[in-house]
Simulated assay, not measured.
Amino acid sequence: MYLLGRLYDNGEGVRENPIRAFGYYQLAASHGFAQAQYVMGMTYLHGYYLEDKNDFKAQNYFRKSIKNGMPEPAAAYWLGFMYETGRGVEKDQKKALEMYRIAAKAGNKEALEKLKSLGEPITTN
């Protein structure tokens, strides 16, 4: 399902169709596929695929992606961003730093830069 979403998203072998891509991503996410949950989080955070922004749904999908193995470390980075800014969650610097650290340990460069900019110790092991 997720891969079908990617094909329609990128127009690979099929005519590009963002609405159909969204449907496949949504279906894969509902079956616990962590990469699709990350895509759904990004969809609602930024308003992709003709969906309105919805910070509550975004943070929910990012949490699910992290819980289901987080193949995309950016899920933790974006959840950290949401905690730092109070988008969709109660503003919480401690939880933001925790998420940034998780993302950094998983290799997310943005999280590493964020921790550095905040003067936080950086450990990636």
Rank of each mutant, 00 (worst) to 15 (best):
Y77R: 10
E90H: 12
L45P: 02
I122T: 06
N60Y: 15
K94C: 11
G32C: 06
Y8D: 01
T123K: 04
T124A: 04
Y100T: 14
A96P: 11
S117C: 07
P121F: 06
L3H: 11
F22A: 03
G11P: 02
K53S: 03
S65I: 05
N10Y: 09
R6A: 07
Y49I: 00
K53N: 03
S117D: 06
N60K: 15
K94L: 15
M99I: 14
I19T: 01
L79T: 14
A111G: 13
N68L: 06
Y83V: 01
V89T: 10
Y100G: 08
G41A: 02
E110D: 07
M40G: 04
N54F: 01
F56A: 14
E110L: 15
G88S: 11
Y2C: 03
A74W: 08
L3Y: 14
S65V: 08
I66F: 10
K64P: 06
M82L: 08
T85R: 12
M40P: 00
M82D: 09
N68I: 10
N108V: 15
L115S: 02
G13C: 02
G23I: 00
A29M: 09
N60A: 14
A74I: 03
G32H: 08
L45S: 14
A76S: 09
Y77G: 09
V89I: 13
M1I: 10
Q26G: 03
T43D: 03
E90V: 11
P121T: 13
G32T: 03
A74Y: 08
L50K: 12
F22T: 06
A58K: 01
